[in-house]
């Protein structure tokens, strides 16, 4: 069973490494361009999924938790933007929507940023001091449709330990006399703000927490405020 301990140890090390930097923000701009009218941002359909971590380490997707988390995150975001004097318009999906494609591009670009900007070993030499990722100019249709300047994309995966997982964690802790920690539930994700004139990602933030609960509005507010760390003023 050396292998199990090896997995446990590396997972624990990974957990410690990742939790050391809870969020890290990459910004292309610090100030949103504003004219006299209040700022309008379209909130794109939330890519959120909540799951339960089973004792054996599988993620079981939870439809009910996910449904409430989507509502909570949306409400918390609307509040947060209102607090900043901006207006958040929630995207409404229609038939024959190009939305699916946009989601796929956003996810691909977002994951590329996570891998190549946030993982030191995988940094790209050509992207050393630049942050020039873009979804392309086709997003401009959103600007006209919603009379908005920016679009906000949010991607969150959140997991919670099941009773069995907690029991396993305690057992491993006791038997190893505290040397090994089984990883528990994790909140990970990212948010990106896209300029609807150019399609450029003007702000990007990663979310990585070992705590938090998106199933209640109060806790979702706290996750949203972490997600919006260093959001351009």
């Amino acid at each position: 069973m050396r292998r199990l301990w090896c997995v446990v140890v590396s997972a624990a090390v990974a957990a410690v490494l990742t939790s050391a930097c809870a969020t890290k923000t990459f910004q292309q701009i610090n100030t949103l361009e504003r004219d006299d009218s209040p700022l309008r941002v379209v909130l794109m359909p939330l890519d959120v999924q909540l799951s339960e971590l089973t004792a054996g380490g599988l993620h079981e997707p939870k439809a009910d938790w996910t449904a409430s988390a989507r509502v909570n995150i949306r409400d918390a975001l609307v509040e947060a933007f209102r607090g900043r004097g901006a207006e958040l318009a929630v995207y409404v999906e229609g038939p024959g929507d190009p939305q699916v494609r946009r989601d796929q591009i956003q996810l691909a670009v977002g994951q590329t940023i996570l891998v190549h900007k946030f993982q030191p070993a995988l940094k790209l030499p050509t992207k050393e001091n630049v942050f020039d990722w873009s979804l392309g100019p086709k997003v401009a249709s959103l600007r006209d449709e919603y009379d908005a300047d920016y679009a906000l994309f949010v991607f969150v995966r959140d997991s919670y330990s099941s009773g069995g997982r907690v029991a396993a964690t305690v057992l491993v802790g006791i038997l190893s006399m505290g040397r090994y920690i089984l990883p528990g539930g994790q909140q990970t994700g990212f948010a990106s703000l896209v300029d609807l004139d150019t399609g450029n990602i003007v702000w990007f933030n990663r979310l990585q927490r070992g705590a938090g609960d998106l199933r209640t509005l109060d806790a979702a507010r706290s996750s949203v405020s972490v997600l919006l760390t260093d959001f351009p003023k």
Partner: peptide
């Protein structure tokens, strides 16, 4: 799920 739980 049951089997991976048992395995753990």
């Amino acid at each position: 799920r049951t089997k991976t739980d048992i395995l753990m």
